[in-house]
């Protein structure tokens, strides 16, 4: 029952932060307008936190490894390639004219399509394991990166600013229409996974034990990988890449909750992720007036935490 109590405490912290974020600095004159800005931002924050926490937790279970995040699939690099390509070929004007909606749909479609192709190609043969898939994803990621670096260097510095803004996740200037679409897609993806959540506990015992306990391992891995790629694509296309948030929150959730059960672990990770993002945004917007995008700070902290994890653990 201790685990449950911790979950309650985390929920309360989140609620307080959310209240602060929404309410701080409101005044009678502009409250209506301010809230109309803040509420969508809050929803986006929670959506991104939940998507990333969920997919990272599941990903770590599938790979049986605490120090990987879905970013090794190469999706972030692909997203940056798409953005660089659009600006490089059509100019930032086109990017603006086409509208955020179009950009969002194209990006998501390409990212999900790429992952499906990758999975399909790799799972055709039995002996190929998930690590093999990751290495291929990484190579593709490096490949995408060299392509986009090439374009970025050629782009005019003013246009480059447009790309740079997209390199780092930001919750400002979000389009509400996309938000609803993103919410819907992510919701459907999670719904598709919901009934198999308990299977994740078994998957964390490794392939052989999972098969022994009656789990269709290969099918489950494929299914969860597809869900992960959808969630990551949607949240990346919505706000931009936040690479190490997942690493940070899932490991913190493990540390705090000390459980192997995924229903707690995932709930905890989502709560911690939401707390981290809300707190970061609160600090950035209301208190410090930070000019640095929140994702850079989170990647920075997440990265340091990763190094700490590597050094602390006696075995990995």
């Amino acid at each position: 029952m201790k685990t449950k109590q911790k979950i309650y405490v985390l929920s309360i912290i989140l609620l307080i932060l959310l209240f602060l974020y929404l309410a701080l600095g409101l005044n009678p004159v502009i409250w209506r307008y301010a809230l109309s800005l803040r509420i969508p931002k809050t929803i986006a924050l929670l959506l991104v936190a939940a998507s990333i926490a969920f997919s990272s937790a599941v990903f770590q279970t599938l790979t049986n490894n605490r120090i990987l995040t879905p970013s090794v699939l190469g999706l972030d690099s692909l997203y940056m390639l798409i953005q660089s390509f659009i600006v490089f070929v059509f100019g930032s004007g086109t990017l603006a004219r086409l509208g955020e909606n179009f950009n969002f749909i194209v990006s998501v479609a390409f990212m999900v399509g790429f992952s499906l192709l990758l999975f399909r190609f790799l799972f055709k043969r039995e002996e190929r394991n998930i690590f093999f898939l990751l290495l291929v994803g990484l190579v593709m990621g490096t490949f995408f990166q060299s392509l986009s670096t090439f374009m970025q260097v050629l782009i005019d510095p003013n246009e480059f600013l447009v790309i740079q803004n997209r390199m780092f996740a930001s919750f400002n200037n979000m389009n509400t229409d996309i938000l609803w679409l993103a919410l819907l897609i992510s919701f459907l993806a999670v719904l598709f996974a919901l009934k198999d959540l308990r299977t994740l506990d078994v998957l964390s015992l490794g392939r052989e034990n999972a098969i022994n306990l009656g789990v269709n391992y290969d099918y489950m891995v494929k299914k969860f990988l597809i869900i992960i790629s959808i969630l990551i694509s949607v949240s990346t296309a919505l706000v931009g890449p936040i690479t190490f948030l997942g690493l940070l929150v899932v490991n913190l959730a493990r540390e705090i909750l000390k459980t192997y059960k995924h229903n707690y672990l995932i709930t905890g990770a989502i709560l911690i992720g939401s707390i981290a993002l809300t707190f970061g945004q609160l600090m950035a917007e209301r208190i410090m007036n930070f000019s640095t995008p929140i994702s850079i700070i989170i990647n920075f902290i997440g990265g340091l935490y990763f190094i700490y994890l590597l050094l602390k653990e006696s075995k990995i």
Binding site: F131, L135, F168, T292, F300, G302, F306
Partner: peptide, 24 residues
Amino acid sequence: VIIPLIGIMMANIIGSVSSFFAYR
């Protein structure tokens, strides 16, 4: 495969530290 994966993760992290300062 896990060893290069960890190496690349590490590289990404050092890269993210770079982009933090580069951005600032």
